[in-house]
Design a protein around this nucleic acid. Structure first.
Lengths: 159, 159
DNA sequence: CCGGGATGCGCGTCGGTGTGCCCAAGGAAA
DNA sequence: TTTCCTTGGGCACACCGACGCGCATCCCGG
């Protein structure tokens, strides 16, 4: 299935207002509500839209500090990777974890209240991860860009 | 304002089904629809809920490759930072950009179709950024964890 | 000329939403 | 202890709008 400009406009709008009604969306895209309903349903059925989710303001929960953690394991054996990953998914402060190429084996993104809180996280969550050889943390001073979807997806539609 | 367990349950549910109706949510949380409507509106008004947004499946758009890019500038002057940031926000393949402490000045997360596509992005987007001294790219082999909200937020509610 | 795909219009039904009101629980003051 | 007040919850209702259907139309490609 190929997406035309209107499909992309629908997706762009839904990434902002997931609760918009059919008529509301139809006006913005330039379709009738029924045509829009069909397209939206098709986008859902074919998996372009994974879910509709509320975006929480983490700052309201005191989570103002983002930390990037680079982790190297003692061994890259399949067993070591599995053991590490099984535990890292349980860490409640971890929001993302990538298995990486290059020197570092894993890169985590961790949310903390502040630096002191990260010390606690480091002690109670990160240091308990198995098979870890080295942990290196960098603090994010500021977030310059934060998009759920790269603009390249909407490329043609923005015009 | 303090959030009790039911507020957290509402947020946890909305993080999954942003389009759930009042009655639907009320049943899951254990409230009447009117009580739930009040709480949900309060959560919105006080900024706990920033927005309702559709989550797109980037793999459906061919964006299966995640790249972490570490960038050091020639200078850390305020002017250099501003110049760099003004351009990086325009890069359509960049989804996140942090100003970092430590050796690297910025860390970007870039979405690409594949490695060849990243070469193109490197050429047409990244290499055109101003004041850049060094660019170092690492490919994500796999995404182990990807949460919008750290589980620590819902801590007590999960019981 | 014709047929498939997509669009737009109109309509009826259904469900959500918001309001008003009453009730229960908890805390404070007398 | 009693009384008052506040806070939050539930119930009922009515309104409004969304949703999904059927059908006619249009555009394009064959």
């Amino acid at each position: 299935m190929a997406l035309d400009r209107k499909d992309l406009a629908i997706l762009a709008e839904l990434t902002t207002n997931a609760r918009a009604s059919h008529t509301e969306l139809a006006n913005k895209v330039g379709l009738s509500s029924t045509a829009l309903a069909r397209r939206q349903k098709a986008l859902e059925d074919e998996g372009y839209i994974q879910a509709y989710q509320a975006a929480l303001d983490l700052a309201q929960f005191g989570l103002t500090t983002t930390v990037l953690v680079r982790i190297a394991l003692e061994s890259q054996s399949d067993e070591a990777l599995k053991a590490f990953e099984a535990e890292v998914v349980k860490c409640p402060s971890v929001v993302r974890c990538f298995l990486m190429s290059g020197n570092d084996d894993y890169i985590l993104i961790v949310m903390a209240r502040d630096i002191q809180d990260f010390e606690r996280i480091h002690r109670t969550e990160l240091s308990r991860l198995p098979r870890v050889a080295r942990v290196q943390s960098s603090f994010a001073l500021r977030e310059v860009v934060n998009r759920a979807v790269p603009n390249v997806v909407f490329g043609e539609a923005k015009r």
